[in-house]
């Protein structure tokens, strides 16, 4: 049975706009460099394009989810606790998706869009991918349907999760009380996730609950003594929207084309930055080099 629930994101968008305005006023007073008009325009262009591509592909994803629903293991139904369980399990599914999106280049090619700004503000939250469907990101939520959660409930939970993640993209908020920081994903935790500082790479994948990172060993706390740098390890250096959207897909195509046959697939499923001749940097190699320098700092030139 097809159930049509309202899309919470539609109702949240006016508040997104309002909060971005408020943060811009904060930035003007405290740190004008936290926003850059061209970067903001690019981020918001990402958001609009993502909404359009999402609407165009939503029908296909819904068809798949409704096809899967009759094969469910349990009849979970619509009880109040089912909503809570769905949200929590969906958040776990998001963690798995997000971790994969940083460790498998095919998924990264889509997710990199969200990280490609050197700024970290509320407009960055709207820098969403146009190519999520091609990257098969929706596959990670499908197990919830097989488990017995109604597709409409899964989509609704995903939307609430997305809305939650909006407000944590800010430098205007420092820390919350310890109990909140322990359980919930917060601006502090998510700043770490967006950082390119070697100590922070590949950490804090949580959507709503940071407990998943604590549980699976990917949690890193923000260090107030180290200034965070945002973006990707090879900064784009352009505000060109189309290039920003497709650059990693272009990179994959070029690499697969030019690689020897036995290494072609490696450029798709291995971590971002992997190369068959070891000539490029992955987050692992950057972290290893950084750790080595921490243990044996270079001696200053005479």
């Amino acid at each position: 049975m097809i159930v049509k629930l309202p899309n919470p994101v539609d109702y949240a968008v006016p508040f997104f706009v309002l909060l971005i305005l408020v943060e811009m006023i904060w930035a003007r007073r405290n740190a004008p460099e936290k926003y850059e008009p061209r970067d903001t325009l690019t981020s918001l262009g990402f958001g609009l394009g993502s909404t359009i591509t999402g609407a165009l592909t939503a029908g296909l994803v819904a068809t798949l989810f409704y096809w899967a629903y009759p094969f469910r293991l349990f009849d979970i139904g619509w009880a109040w606790w089912a909503w809570i369980a769905c949200f929590i399990i969906d958040d776990l599914a998001y963690y798995v998706f997000h971790r994969s999106a940083h460790r498998v280049r095919w998924f990264w090619a889509s997710h990199v869009n969200h990280h490609s700004s050197q700024h970290y503000n509320l407009s960055t939250a709207l820098r969403q991918s146009w190519t999520g469907f091609i990257a098969f990101g929706f596959i990670f939520r499908l197990p919830l349907v097989f488990l017995g959660f109604h597709p409409a409930m899964v989509f609704f939970s995903g939307a609430i999760n997305l809305i939650y993640q909006f407000w944590i993209h800010t430098e205007a908020v420092k820390r919350f009380p310890a109990w909140f920081e322990y359980v919930m994903n917060t601006p502090s935790h998510h700043r770490v996730h967006h950082a390119t500082n070697p100590r922070y790479l590949d950490s804090n994948y949580a959507g709503t609950f940071i407990i998943w990172d604590r549980l699976f060993g990917t949690f890193v706390a923000e260090n107030d003594d180290e200034k965070i740098r945002y973006g990707i390890v090879k900064q784009l250096g352009t505000f060109n929207l189309l290039y920003s959207v497709f650059h990693e897909w272009i990179g994959i195509a070029k690499d697969v084309w030019s690689a020897p046959w036995r290494h072609k697939m490696g450029y798709i499923w291995r971590p971002p930055g992997w190369s068959h001749d070891g000539s490029r940097d992955t987050s692992d190699s950057i972290k290893a080099r950084w750790r080595a320098r921490q243990e044996n700092p270079p001696t200053p030139a005479e």
Binding site: I25, E33, L41, G45, T51, I52
Partner: peptide, 26 residues
């Protein structure tokens, strides 16, 4: 859906204009 996209586009251009007017970026 088209109305939503048009409203979003208007909001985007407005925010980018505000950011420019505020001389953000440094």
């Amino acid at each position: 859906e088209i109305a939503k996209v048009a409203a979003s586009l208007a909001a985007i251009l407005f925010l980018a204009w505000v950011a420019r007017q505020m001389k953000l970026g440094g």
